[in-house]
Design a protein around this nucleic acid. Structure first.
Lengths: 119, 119
DNA sequence: AAAATTAACTTGTATAATACAAGTTAATAT
DNA sequence: ATATTAACTTGTATTATACAAGTTAATTTT
């Protein structure tokens, strides 16, 4: 996918920050990435996070993360077929960004803690 | 401001990532921070960015960035009084996050470039 | 065997956010 | 007197989000 997938009538610049925000710029996507980096794989695991993401938002984000190449959907069983999600290299390489965010956040939201530690 | 300023009926976790996304998790805020890190200060400079942010969104984000302690509004002239925006330490400390985002983005959106270089 | 449970979603709907065009205000420049 | 400028604000249509509830296919419990 190229940059800018939204319905805007003109494009943003071809800046790495702008491109990244087109894929990651919302309140939920990076929290799902955080959970994936922490080893979570299944729908119910993401739902069980104390962030309380709505089911439709989770389904939508997983779909977008897959089509943008951040995760792969894998069937972990048949009858009924059920899927789990694993990070691609593109997704795994977001770890330094999350780490920087965690470091910064722990400074400016004193007392905040990553639940299972990405740090 | 504490974490979670939105109208949700319950809170997200007190995770540094969740807290950061409450303030920064949208498609525009980090682009304004990028411009501030590049030395831009005035409303028209932000508008002149090739991202084409809408004027009402820019005004809204500057207001939120100020109330969340990322920027300070300073009058740079009287009659008529006009304001510019400068980063606080909290805002300046986002630089490593932006740098990580730029590094990652240049890898995964090949050809993308920061207009005036935050790198 | 019938009823309940489970995982992974989907659907409906009210509320909030975003995009876009246009308007406002106070002062300086022509 | 008219135009221009900087920094916004307002109106409105479209899109996204939050929340509750429903669906499907299979297994587990009673």
């Amino acid at each position: 996918m190229t940059h800018n997938t939204t319905q805007q009538s003109f494009e943003r610049s071809f800046c790495p920050v702008a491109c990244a925000l087109d894929d990651l710029g919302d309140k939920w996507t990076l929290l799902i990435i955080r959970d994936l980096l922490l080893g979570k794989k299944r729908y119910q695991e993401f739902l069980a996070s104390p962030e309380h993401i709505a089911t439709n938002i989770l389904a939508d984000r997983l779909k977008k993360l897959e089509s943008a190449g951040f995760v792969l959907q894998q069937a972990y069983q048949q009858k009924p077929v059920r899927y789990q999600y694993v990070l691609t290299q593109k997704g795994k390489d977001l770890r330094p960004i999350l780490q920087a965010l965690v470091k910064w956040g722990k400074t400016y939201y004193p007392g905040s803690r990553v639940l299972d530690a990405v740090e």
